[in-house]
C-alpha cells in the first residue's frame, strides 16, 4: 500500500489546542461577569475579585492540565 500522505509531529499539540478552547471561553465569561459586577457596584470590588480568583483557579486548572498532558505523554 502506498502512503499517500504523511504527517509527522505530536498530536499533543492538537490536543492542547482543543483543550484550551473550553477554559478560554470559561475564563472569558467568568472574568467578564466579574468586571460587569464591579462596574455596577464598585463598593463590592474586593469581594468580587476574591471570588473571581476562586473561580479562575478552578477553570485554569483544566487548561494547565491540557498543557502538561502534552508533555507527560
Amino acid at each position: 500500500m502506498d502512503i499517500l500522505a504523511e504527517l509527522n509531529g505530536n498530536i499533543a499539540t492538537v490536543g492542547y489546542g482543543l483543550a484550551a478552547i473550553g477554559p478560554g471561553i470559561g475564563l472569558g465569561i467568568l472574568i467578564g461577569k466579574a468586571l460587569e459586577g464591579m462596574a455596577r457596584q464598585p463598593e463590592v470590588t474586593n469581594t468580587l475579585r476574591t471570588n473571581m480568583f476562586i473561580g479562575v483557579a478552578f477553570v485554569e486548572v483544566l487548561a494547565l492540565l491540557g498543557l502538561i498532558t502534552g508533555f507527560l505523554f
Partner: peptide
C-alpha cells in the same frame, strides 16, 4: 495540591 501547583505552573 492545586493552589501551589497552579501558581508555579501558570
Amino acid at each position: 495540591v492545586l493552589r501551589p501547583f497552579t501558581l508555579a505552573l501558570r
